[in-house]
Design a protein around this nucleic acid. Structure first.
Lengths: 220, 220
DNA sequence: GGTTCTTTTGAACGAGTGGTAGAATTTTCC
DNA sequence: GGAAAATTCTACCACTCGTTCAAAAGAACC
């Protein structure tokens, strides 16, 4: 049939005499499958990424994948779980802490941006491929996603209640705005760019807290 | 699987009879195909939406679609073109107008939010399914998307140059933030919600221009 | 009614998919 | 070295999908 031509990596200790490829030869596991699949899903989409493609990226036939995973959807589920696991607890800590709302918001943005940047592929999948989840798991994810947003919203509400945030802006809309600002990272952020995630987070906090306009401008 | 819902073609000529219950029986055309496909693509994803499903939604076999469209990808292309067509020109007008940057920004946000709200399904597809575009068309879309962002960015730069916007925030990052805020609408906006697109746009402008924090707060 | 043009059908196709089973291979451990 | 366990490969299946096309059905016009 069609023989796939692969690039040969130059810097490998060839253990077997075969004109076969020498791939990274990493020990297969659920973890590495999910990691590799994340990259492919993020780049090409979940539906457009075949198990053959995942196997090939790992230097393995797709049959081998099934020893470590139940099926394709399980990979997707694990990616979603990873994002939630990494995201939820830190935000809960920040929300509960004894801090002024402005500081909470700053930390929440920093946290969210950090996750979005560190786990860029997973984050992309999290917000793009949720339509492929089905059944109770889909509902669980939706619920936890909403709970996460709610934590953000509470911080904004707290600021308004304490009189340090404008009360003209609806907390829900403000939350969606700020989260959208952060989540949009997955559309443009690339590691090694001009700014570090920390710097980006600082910019976003500046924007969300004080806006673009200079206070001494002509307007009120 | 599901049985085919039969149109009542058995009866006599029914040119003016509109009281059908089963299917809309709209005259097939490229336009209605694209419109229906947009809804399905937005809800279930491009890859997961079959031509059978589109045909069924229109009360027609998928073969009939091919009289009006070249192939599945063309539907996607048309959706992308629609979004750009509706978006580009108005923003260009705003960017070129003789207005203070703050007002330009306000109008740009209002415009973008309006498009995102009015064309919610198409907008969702525009930012989610771009991985399915291939060849020169993919590059063209990417270029025009970037050009659109650039117009936004110019407005911010102008504000900084004229000294009415903070110069601490990188214009590119600020633009990504604001656009992200708006584009995130596709994740949560539903027509008929609590706020109108105009109100949402006003909130977003408030946020982007002045931020959440009250100026007279303790901090600097 | 007859002719022509437009539109839809229905069936078929070929490629590609996720998934399975068992043989084959490699690793582990004694 | 060798048995047992762990892991991967090969071959295959059932199915779905996008696409094609000849034939049927409508519509329009005279």
């Amino acid at each position: 049939m069609s023989q796939k031509v692969r690039l040969e990596t130059t810097s490998k200790s060839n253990r077997k005499v075969e004109n076969k490829v020498d791939k990274p030869r990493i020990r297969l596991s659920q973890q590495v499958i999910v990691a590799t699949a994340s990259d492919l899903f993020a780049r090409n989409g979940f539906g457009a990424t075949s198990l053959d493609a995942i196997g090939e990226a790992l230097g393995v036939t797709k049959g081998a994948l099934y020893y470590h995973i139940k099926n394709k959807e399980e990979i997707l589920k694990l990616i979603f779980m990873t994002v939630l696991t990494v995201s939820e607890e830190p935000l809960r800590q920040i929300a509960q802490a004894e801090l002024p709302p402005a500081e909470k918001l700053r930390r929440a943005i920093a946290h969210h941006v950090a996750v979005a940047a560190d786990r860029s592929p997973a984050m992309t999948i999290f917000y793009r491929e949720d339509v492929h989840l089905t059944g109770p798991f889909a509902r669980e994810i939706a619920a936890r996603k909403k709970a996460y947003e709610r934590l953000f919203e509470k911080i904004v509400e707290e600021g308004i209640t304490l009189g340090v945030f404008h009360k003209e802006i609806d907390p829900k809309i403000a939350t969606f705005g700020i989260l959208g600002m952060c989540n949009w990272l997955s559309q443009w952020y690339r590691p090694g760019g001009t700014y570090t995630p920390q710097q980006i987070a600082a910019f976003f906090n500046q924007l969300a807290s004080f806006g673009l306009a200079l206070p001494d401008a002509s307007s009120l």
